[in-house]
Design a protein around this nucleic acid. Sequence first.
DNA 1: GTTGATTATTAGAATCATTCCAATTTCCTG
DNA 2: CAGGAAATTGGAATGATTCTAATAATCAAC
Lengths: 146, 146
Amino acid sequence: MSSTTPDALAQRLADSGLRSTPQRELVYSVLLAKRDHPTADQVFTRVKEELPGISLATVYNCLETLVSCRLVKQVNLEREPTRYCPNLHPHAHFHDEITGATHDIDLPPAIFSKLRAVLPPGYAAQGVEITFRGKAAAAAVTCSEE
Amino acid sequence: MSSTTPDALAQRLADSGLRSTPQRELVYSVLLAKRDHPTADQVFTRVKEELPGISLATVYNCLETLVSCRLVKQVNLEREPTRYCPNLHPHAHFHDEITGATHDIDLPPAIFSKLRAVLPPGYAAQGVEITFRGKAAAAAVTCSEE
DNA sequence: GTTGATTATTAGAATCATTCCAATTTCCTG
DNA sequence: CAGGAAATTGGAATGATTCTAATAATCAAC
């Protein structure tokens, strides 16, 4: 599992010339603590328990900062609110249509060469995003669970 | 190529107990005419040239109707406005980050079994969505071009 | 450690795609 | 034609996100 600890945050921020702040640390630790792909609003709710004075704008700012530091990825499903994911491994998402939960699916590196093969010549993909929709077995557990 | 003509529309609508209207036909023909994955707003602009009195709400309604008839698919990239696509073949999307254009990429059926294989037991995918990001060669042309 | 300059946070206003609403209008069916 | 269902319409409402301008925290040098 990606051993990206909250401690790593200060370093990453410094690398980008940014400061480590209580808000940023808390937002990041909330993402690490419960990897259920929360929305900004859900992060806001969780973070407020520890830091009641924080504002939603700050949560958005912190999330944006974490994304720009490449510590967190955004996940967009349909037109729903953006979700945030601290899993940096190459992975796909499985959107359970029954529960609404989103699970991470680890991807073997081999799949990427197979996918690249479907691109016509001249297409240079810098990234791929794979999203499944369907039903997940109740007991199913991968690298991320709710 | 999918030979879904505007004529097929009336039949599909009837199958769903819906009426064929000038607005619906025009919206659909606009999608067929230029397969560049337009947004609702872009469809609105194109449709107004022929039917100046049409309202944006109607365009949204028509698009929604076409989607519910399974004649058109929605494409969501990041948090950008929803785009509409009359290509019913299984296909991926390639989002050209330079031009902003979205191209269809035909998918060989084999890729689906490979993708299904990455799912842990218990996960039943009903659909997959694959989106590439990167640069497309200028001359690149697939089943859909701008 | 005070002074500035830079960077963060904040509350609330603004934006923008989309949906909702209530009021016509259109279209069948009898 | 009359009645009723289905569509369309303009405008208001929604909701996630971004912007703005003001305040607060932090850092670097003196």
